[in-house]
Structure formats: structure tokens, C-alpha cells
Design a protein around this nucleic acid. Structure first.
Lengths: 410, 410
DNA sequence: GAGCTTTTTTCGAGCAGTAAAAATAATGCT
DNA sequence: AGCATTATTTTTACTGCTCGAAAAAAGCTC
């Protein structure tokens, strides 16, 4: 029985959340537009806005600019998020880089620190200490924002702890096992959320491409790892909804190629950069995977494929086959209408498409529902950041802001 | 924007639903107990109950029996569903059988008709006509209940139409393509829901075993087909949540054994009765699958395995391997804590367990989260019926009953 | 400044929920 | 029998939220 009793309090929270969400996705709006967008009555919008205004969460923006020719009637006053109402800190933790960003409540980047990460980084300093150091730096450089930081979110790769305190496994050396989320939360005094990179990709692409906003999309990252995020009818599949997708480490061929994770036959072992490289250079598939592939080397491999190099093409064909069967198996459980490839490997879609489609065609679900639309999106960094950002701001909206008690109205 | 505005009406619906759900899962209860169970105040429970009583949805049951020795204070009056408040008709449609049941609002079976189904059945009569015939029979035999039938639910195998009007594909001959749900709804004038058998299994086992009620369980049916239903934290994964699991037709081996669906390498082609039989008798795996396997023959194969027959054991080993890798691939996306095998094949778990566990052990997710608990539940019919029943009654509760307008209180 | 148009606010009604007091119905003791 | 005790159920008084309708506000045009 997870459902909870509903009362006037929950009604207020719900409707405030509705309004905040509309503001979040549509930018500053007039009250009338918001009423139409949310379905709330004008009276309610005014009342809620009055509260939000008093609580200094939103602010009235001066006239919206005269726009098109003559406009009659009372001009609308837009309301939008007050940028200084809250701040969030976002950590994007990667195999070779940490990017710490301070963002205001309107989603505008305020400050950012980037640091290189090496396999030794977390051997020398605990993940908690390393991240807290960056947090302090951001706080010191932005003393006004510092006390207003409401949430911290961390994007990682790997398998999350059940309780969200850290990672059970990660390709980033010495990161797994440390309950850094809990520790940072205790130290910083604010909520800390850990998100899988794959899932953020799904969230991010949803915000980037309006066509995909409410569609069912499987976003597949291909690069130094293989990961997937899923959204169905605009809803991101989270851990609790069953989208704990360790897609890259789904088995492709029993006892197949050796993967970085130590298992054999993972999709990643064929489709990640090191896998394609290994195949292309005819290195035995049981050879220990390269710990890191220089971007250059991977790019030049793609170039060679573009120039018709047989070995390179073959490597990507095998990658496509692994991806194709992985997707076909995924489609036995979910049925997204779109498959979106992102990351460095997305450039090589043309060499993989044939194998992917062949694998999908050989599945019952696709022979009945038809093939999903497969496309590539070359930018990879922005979707992750944007996903992390929107997810975190939405959490602030729903958890911190919507739950504020209402002011007594006179 | 799927969220809807919240108002006092939605509050009432929500809380009425809460109360009905408590009554549904806990049987007749006193108002005080219900208040504790739902978290509602006593006053609200009384008020809502007054409404439900007036609307003749529930009824007060005479004293609950003195029970244990001395009891002091005003005795509680139990309230429970009024059996005659509503009725539902449930169709369980199988490859070789149709079972039509009339059930009252308290979940008590009132009448039942069983009919054999052959591959010719739906060539001769349209699915719509065939089902409507049974509906009429039930109505005529139960004239009192007839006008009170609120919903019809149909359990099927196969791939559902996107809009729920029928099936896109089914192992039942000549069933796919007919929009029987829509047609029956139009003819009978009540809502008709079509459910996948696999998902009902998940729902049913949840109600059967209290331990599993709020756990995360993958229920796998093994018999003439292979199907799966998933529940995560007590929530059944439906089509919209991404649990459209065509697990039986997930690819196991590219270009592998021929499946009844026409594709190759499906899990079913190894793990369904015909698959095991084919392997055990060393029939080439490209041979056309037997259209139906007599229960006897399958049972005797299990018996032979129990007696140590090598060929039979081998057949089940291969089935276990297919299931194991299928489950390992599923686990890359969901992480249920329990795997429950049901159906005729569940008896053979001991011959498959080794291969299943071997396959799971070879996956990253299991090596980190540990193996899920794998067990078998031999009864198969009851979970499906129970799942169909509870799902349908819950739909009546939420859609028809909870939404009733409240009486004006004087 | 009057008239027009559109946006925003105000006001009273209605409804659902809670807390606390009152009513109810049995038991137990004198 | 009469009255205190105990526990359940109902009633009462009050709060908070949304909504519809009407009023007020704000700019533009003439």
C-alpha cells in the first residue's frame, strides 16, 4: 500500500507542481497562458502565483515586448523563475574527467570547474573528499549562491547501490563501494542524488528534441562504454520503474568476447570503442581490453571505415550485430518507437545500421510492430548535462518548492 | 503533460479508492481498522462509508463473532463488499479451451462455462461471435446478475494491439486481427479489457503468496509457450510501464532453433514443451514445431528425466540454458529479487536450475547483486484466473465505484 | 477622457478532510 | 438493577483548496 491519503495539502502540492512544471518546460508565461496550459482556473493560478511571488520563488517580468503589430487589451505580465531562488550543483563524473557546475534556479550556468580524472585519482583521494573539494571551491567563488544550494546531483557510470548511496560497480577506478552520496549529503547538508549516465541521456534528449519529448525512445550511448536510457510516452524509466538498464553488459554471445567488466560476451565487448578496435585489428577477443582508447584512435578508425577500409568496416559490422541483437532482446520487453544513438560511436551508424536492422527484422516483435526509427545524434555532452540539470531542477520544484506551506491569505 | 489538475473531486476519488483497495485486499473490516489501514481519519471513513452504504456498494455485516474470549467496548461492525453490487465476466482464452466465468463484486464465482477450442474454432465463428455467445449464455442463466455486469476481461496470449482492441499476433489460430474487444464492448455496452496471460500470472502470484506481494518478481510461465510477467515493488509492469514482455520470443541464439512464431532462435523454441521434446528426440532444430503437444507426452518426458534418462535431461538442460540467458538478458534491464517458474514446465525446474544459474552467474548484474531466488510454483491455472479477477475488480473499484458522485449530506 | 479589449484579482460557494467532543453499545463490578 | 469502564462510531466545528462569476485593472484607439 504505497498510496497515501489525499487531502487539501496534497492538492496544493500537486497543483503547484503542475504550475512549476509548466513554467519549467515553457519558460516565462503569463498567468492566462499558464491557466490554459495546466487546466487550472484563472483564480487558482493567481492564488498560487501570489504565494510563489511572496515566497520569492518566481518574479514578474516586465512587459513581454510588443511583439506582433498592434495588440489590444491589458498586456500580460509574464512570470518566470527567480534565478536567485535556489541553486543546484551538478557533478558529471567520467572515466577521465570531472565537471562540476553551479546552476541557478532558472537553469542558467553560473560557474563551472573541470578537472582531469585518472585511474589514480580515487586511489589518492576518497571520492567524497574529491567531490567535496570541488563543492567548496564553487561555494567560495560564489558566496551569494552558496547558502542557497538546494540539491547536489552526480552523474556516474556503473551499477547503483540499492539505496542510492553510491555505486556497486563502476568502470571508474576505485569509485565503487564508497558511499559518497550519503557522505556528501551529511557534510553539505543538502540532498544528494546519484544518476546513471544512460538514464540522463534519455532525459536530456527528451528536452533537446521536442519531437521526442513525449515519444518512446531508447537512447543508446556508444563510446568507451555502451549504455542505454529509456523513455516511454515521455516518462523516463527509472530504477523503480524497471529501467535499471545495464544494457552495455547484457550478454550478447555466451562465453564470447572478454569485456572490461570481466565477464564475457557483453554487448560492450563488441560495440564499445575498445571492442571495435580489437575486432578491426584482429586481436583475439579473449585479449584483455585496452583500459582506455584515445579519442584520436577511435576517430581515425571511423575515418578508415568511411574510406572503405575492410577491417574497420568489419569491426563496426560486428558492433552493429551485437547492438542489433541486444536491441532486439530489449524490444521483447519494451517497445520504443525510436532508437537514438548518441556518443562518439554514433558517427559510425551507417556501418552498423545494416546489421542492426537485420537483427531486428529477425525478431517477432519487429516483424509485427515494424522497425523502430533508428537515428543518430552526434552531440553527447549536452544531453547528459541537460538531463542532469532538468532532473535536478524538477526535483527541487517538486520536493522543495511545491511542498512549501501556503501563506495565509488576508 | 499527463498530470491532471487536482481538486476536491480527485481527493474523494483517491480516498474512496484507498478504502476500496483496503477492503479488497483485507476482506471485511471495521471502520476503525480501515482508518488505521488507510491512514484516513475516523470521520472520513465514516463519511465515505455512509456514501458507499447509501450507494449499496458495501453492506454492514452482523457482528464479527465474539472471537477471543473477553472483548470490551462497543463491538465493531464490519463492512464488506455487497456481493450483488456488481458483476464481472472473465474470459480465459487458451489454445485449447475457453473458460467463461461470472463473478460477483466480492470475488465469488457465480457461474462458469467451459468450452473446448480447436484450431478450427475461429475459422468457423468469429472471435467476437464466439465470445458473445458465451456471454449470452451466462446472462440467461443468471438473469439477476445480467444487468449488473460492469466489466468484461479477456485473458489471451500473443501481442496486443496498441489500442487494446484485439491482438496483432497470437498462437491461437485465426484470432489475431479481429477487433473483438471493441466489438464486444459495443455489443454488450460495458468496458472490455484484454490482458496478456503473462502479466496476469504476475498479478495472480502476487495475490497468492503474501511474501511476494510487494517484492519484485519475474513470473515465468513454461508450457506450450514461454511467457513472463513482471512486478517491481508490488507494481505490475503493464504495457505503458514497459513490461510488454514478449519474453518467450526474445532471441536466444541468432538463427537458432525454429520457433512456432516462424522466427528462429526464440527462447520458446528451446524451452516450451515442443522445444524440449524436439531436442530430447534429437529432431533437427529446424524441423517444423509440433502444433500441439499432448499433456501426457510432456509429463512422461519429465518423468523420464526424473528417472535419469539422458536424452530427456539433455532437453531440459538446453531449455534451462535458453531460459538462463534470457533471464540474464532481462536482468540487464530489470532487477527482480525473485524468479518464479509456473506452468507445466515448472516441475522440471531441477533439471534446468543448473543451467539457469550458470547463465546468470556469467552476467555482470548477478555477479554484483547476487543471484535472485529461483523457485517453482506448480499450480498455473489459479494464478491466471485470480490475476484476471483481481485486476478486473480493481478496475471496477477505481473506475466505476470510486468515481461515483457523493450523496449530499444533510 | 470615453470606449474597447484582454488580463488579473476578488468574492462567495462548495466540498473534502481533520480534530475533538458526543453518542452508542457492549462488559464488569457492586 | 445501576453505574463505571472501554472501545467504536457519529456529529460538530473548523480549515484549506478550487472554481465560476463578476469586478477591477491596464493599456490602446479615437
Amino acid at each position: 500500500m504505497t498510496r497515501k491519503v489525499s487531502d487539501s495539502d496534497s492538492v496544493r502540492r500537486e497543483n503547484r507542481g503542475l504550475l512549476l512544471a509548466a513554467l519549467r518546460s515553457g519558460g516565462p508565461q503569463s498567468r492566462t497562458v499558464l491557466a490554459g496550459l495546466t487546466g487550472l482556473s484563472h483564480a487558482s493560478v493567481t492564488a498560487i502565483m501570489q504565494d510563489l511571488l511572496n515566497q520569492r520563488v518566481v518574479e514578474e517580468l516586465s512587459t513581454p515586448g510588443p511583439a506582433d503589430g498592434r495588440m489590444r487589451g491589458r498586456p500580460a505580465t509574464l512570470v518566470g523563475f527567480r534565478r536567485q531562488a535556489a541553486y543546484v550543483v551538478l557533478f558529471e563524473l567520467d572515466v577521465n574527467r570531472l565537471r562540476a557546475s553551479l546552476v541557478d534556479y532558472a537553469g542558467v550556468l553560473v560557474d563551472r570547474i573541470e578537472t582531469a580524472v585518472t585511474p589514480q585519482t580515487f586511489a589518492a583521494a576518497s571520492p567524497t573528499a574529491f567531490l567535496l573539494e570541488h563543492l567548496s571551491a564553487l561555494r567560495q567563488r560564489n558566496p551569494v549562491a552558496a547558502p542557497l544550494i538546494r540539491r547536489i546531483a552526480i552523474s556516474v557510470q556503473g551499477i547503483l547501490d540499492r539505496d542510492g548511496s553510491g555505486l556497486k560497480w563502476s568502470p571508474i577506478a576505485h569509485l565503487a563501494g564508497s558511499p559518497f552520496a550519503t557522505e556528501i549529503a551529511a557534510e553539505a547538508g543538502v540532498a544528494v542524488a546519484v544518476h546513471k549516465r544512460g538514464r540522463l541521456l534519455a532525459e536530456g534528449t527528451r528536452w533537446l528534441d521536442p519531437n521526442l519529448h513525449d515519444a518512446s525512445v531508447a537512447t543508446v550511448f556508444i563510446g568507451s562504454t555502451v549504455a542505454m536510457g529509456l523513455s516511454l510516452h515521455g516518462q523516463i524509466m527509472g530504477r523503480s520503474e524497471g529501467g535499471a538498464t545495464e544494457f552495455g553488459h547484457m550478454n550478447h554471445i555466451p562465453n564470447g568476447a572478454l569485456c572490461r567488466c570481466g565477464m564475457r560476451g557483453c554487448i560492450e565487448a563488441y560495440a564499445a570503442d575498445y571492442g571495435v578496435l580489437r575486432t578491426s585489428y584482429s586481436v583475439p577477443e579473449t585479449a584483455t581490453p585496452a583500459p582506455a582508447v584515445p579519442t584520436q584512435q577511435y576517430d581515425s578508425l571511423i575515418q578508415r571505415a568511411e574510406q572503405g577500409d575492410r577491417a574497420a568496416t568489419h569491426g563496426f559490422n560486428l558492433a552493429g550485430r551485437a547492438l542489433g541483437f541486444g536491441l532486439s532482446r530489449m524490444l521483447a520487453m519494451f517497445d520504443p518507437s525510436h532508437i537514438l544513438l548518441v556518443g562518439p560511436g554514433a558517427r559510425a551508424l551507417s556501418f552498423m545500421r545494416g546489421e542492426i536492422e537485420a537483427a531486428l527484422t529477425a525478431s517477432l516483435v519487429c516483424s509485427i510492430n515494424g522497425l523502430p526509427v533508428i537515428s543518430a545524434h552526434l552531440d553527447e555532452k549536452e544531453p547528459i548535462f541537460r538531463g542532469l540539470l532538468m532532473k535536478t531542477l524538477a526535483a527541487v520544484d517538486d520536493t522543495d518548492i511545491a511542498a512549501l506551506p501556503s501563506e495565509v491569505r488576508v
